[in-house]
Design a protein around this nucleic acid. Structure first.
Lengths: 359, 359
DNA sequence: AAATGGATGGCAACCCGTTGCCATCGTTTG
DNA sequence: CAAACGATGGCAACGGGTTGCCATCCATTT
């Protein structure tokens, strides 16, 4: 191990400061972390000495005794998906303001990585905000017993959660489509294990029944632009006049596929997405979608976590166990009235030039 | 401090394992970290006991003696900008594969946050990958003396760097525009302190001179979609037939503004972006842009950092100090031939000169 | 004047691993 | 058969702070 040489190498330690001031290390420690525990005069001398020496407490040493690491982990399914940008920002902002550092873990949509992260992180962080699709509810509860956890877009007993109320907005969206004359509508589902996708589908089913229209499920599709092409083909195949997609990525991928096949959006088919990710407002046509307040989700989840980390703090006191954030339906140009009734589903038109606007 | 109660609460420690096996903690430590230093028989017994107790070494304690934290920080200007998604992914992948954790710091395009991060992080991480616009070269060098640093998209002596060779591609882009008949071209610059924007502008100036066309600079603009509207207006104001934007965000913002003002792209004005961010391929019209290999940038920068953290490792040995990654010009629909003769007196360059430059 | 008590600072144990050095023991070598 | 040596495991000192508990000291209170 590297021993202290005569001259002082590495960064200043607490005992350097103590020596300088002529007090015990314990006193320096208290001067820095327990304001009020030492006299003001002494505290100022300690602060001055610390500043002179450029002293910075060693976070590792501090966390060894305190048991706290000053780190909070955010687990996201796929950083490549712009949906998560807002989430990251919201989390980041709140953590910084409370002096925490932010460990980011990209699960790369991979269940092994997800499980590995869930197994190893609890010993390295003070808390976790988890948005993972593969882990089971039970396993998540188990992890939550080891370290404070807040889950996003999933609800389970015993673990605080923040969810976006996309399902309610989907009911609005369906009603909106029906009001425009659509009767046969499809839902392009997300991945099998996705809690969100199941909830969305359940809401749509219920609403379709109430409204007396058919809503068929197609998929599951993996939530990427590529799968959007498959979803588009499937929607065309069953001959619906409108399709609601599990998320915008899928919808945007479908938009491209429709254009390739010469199917006009919204002329031949109306498209609704979910989440309102970056790009949903400038794709072609701009997407009617459900706007998820992702940054607020990140902020809220982080606040809830911090409240559990510091019980008794006024700032974050009295946050409920479960938060459901409203998500407005954002109307853009990808939805229009259903075309007058047809006997047969629309046959694909001859392929148009890529990117050509069919309107 | 929470003392051990009779029953064992918290996670198992090394001395729990030692007691179980009936050896000293030092022996357990060596059995786990110095294969060969203890007999195989004993090592197996230790491993078995550790597994039974679910023992996980405490990362904090470990880093206290070793001096290494197992964390690497990535500093990005603005996580809200999808440009950084690829960067994050690339960094994340490499770090994970080498057993490091990933601290993400969003600088929120704010110089105070940037400086605070640069001041505090060195004591908390083993190394940093920095993509920050506000910090000065000198300050960065100073930080790099405290902790290994790799910078992205900036070159300075003494600090390893990874840059995207957008400037070269911009020269190609300019030549491409000229070959299509454009003579008056604008460059919408990024933020003043941006190293990248300066380099891009320098490359364009040089190329414009060689090609005998005018390239005017407008801006600086902050790199967001909103500023894109201002940039669009400025480009229209000076009456160019093509505009190259500092980045795609700006270009996409401009696209929207052009549409609002009834200016056809590429009919009335051609648009070129930089970076090929998420959305550049499905905006309207799809953007001709320069594709930055962001994920590769993240991977390369991380590899370079790890090479410095583990000198003598075969895997990452022999990486140069400076890496420049090529960025192809990606042609989409936002560029077209300049409209025939305008009121503006185009310099009478013979078309022949153009033919030669078309590649 | 004695008793009570709050403010202040020091001592030393402790958090959990890591590692330099030494003791022991069995084995190989001359 | 003794000297030398390699393999193996233990002791204890760290690393850099934090905190329970105690000793002082001075100021009230009665």
């Amino acid at each position: 191990m590297a021993r202290r040489r005569g001259t002082e190498p590495g960064p200043a330690t607490i005992s350097d400061v103590a020596r300088r001031v002529g007090v015990a290390t314990s006193t320096v420690s208290r001067a820095l972390t327990r304001p009020g525990r030492v006299s003001d005069a002494l505290r100022l001398r300690v602060l001055a000495a610390a500043a002179e020496l450029g002293y910075q407490p060693n976070p590792q040493a501090r966390s060894l005794t305190s048991g706290r690491t000053g780190c909070v982990a955010l687990l996201v399914q796929d950083v490549t998906n712009p949906y998560f940008c807002g989430l990251i920002r919201g989390t980041q902002t709140q953590l910084r303001s409370r002096g925490y550092r932010h460990l980011l873990v990209d699960l790369e949509n991979n269940d092994e990585i997800e499980e590995a992260a869930l197994a190893e992180l609890p010993s390295a962080v003070d808390g976790m905000v988890v948005m993972g699709a593969h882990v089971s509810d039970d396993r998540l509860r188990e992890v939550a017993r080891r370290v404070p956890v807040v889950v996003i877009n999933r609800e389970l007993d015993g673990v605080p959660s923040v969810v976006v109320d996309t399902p309610s907005a989907l009911e609005d969206a369906l009603q909106y489509l029906v009001s425009l004359g659509h009767r046969r509508i499809a839902y392009a589902a997300g991945p099998k294990p996705s809690w969100s996708s199941r909830k969305r589908w359940a809401a749509l089913q219920g609403a379709a029944e109430r409204l007396g229209v058919t809503c068929e499920r197609i998929g599951p599709f993996s939530p990427g632009k590529l799968a959007g092409a498959a979803a588009a083909d499937a929607a065309l195949h069953i001959g619906v006049t409108a399709c609601i997609f599990f998320n915008d990525l899928l919808a945007i991928g479908a938009l491209k596929r429709f254009a390739e096949r010469g199917v006009a959006v919204p002329g031949d088919i109306s498209v609704v997405g979910c989440d309102d990710i970056f790009g949903a407002d400038f794709c072609n046509p701009p997407l009617t979608t459900i706007t998820a307040p992702t940054e607020q989700v990140g902020r809220t989840a982080t606040d809830m976590l911090l409240a559990r980390l510091h019980p008794g703090d006024a700032e974050t006191a009295a946050l409920p166990e479960r938060v459901k954030l409203p998500a407005p339906l954002t109307i853009r140009a990808s939805v229009a009235s259903a075309r007058p009734a047809q006997a047969e589903p629309a046959p694909p038109r001859p392929a148009a030039a890529l990117g050509e606007t069919v309107s």
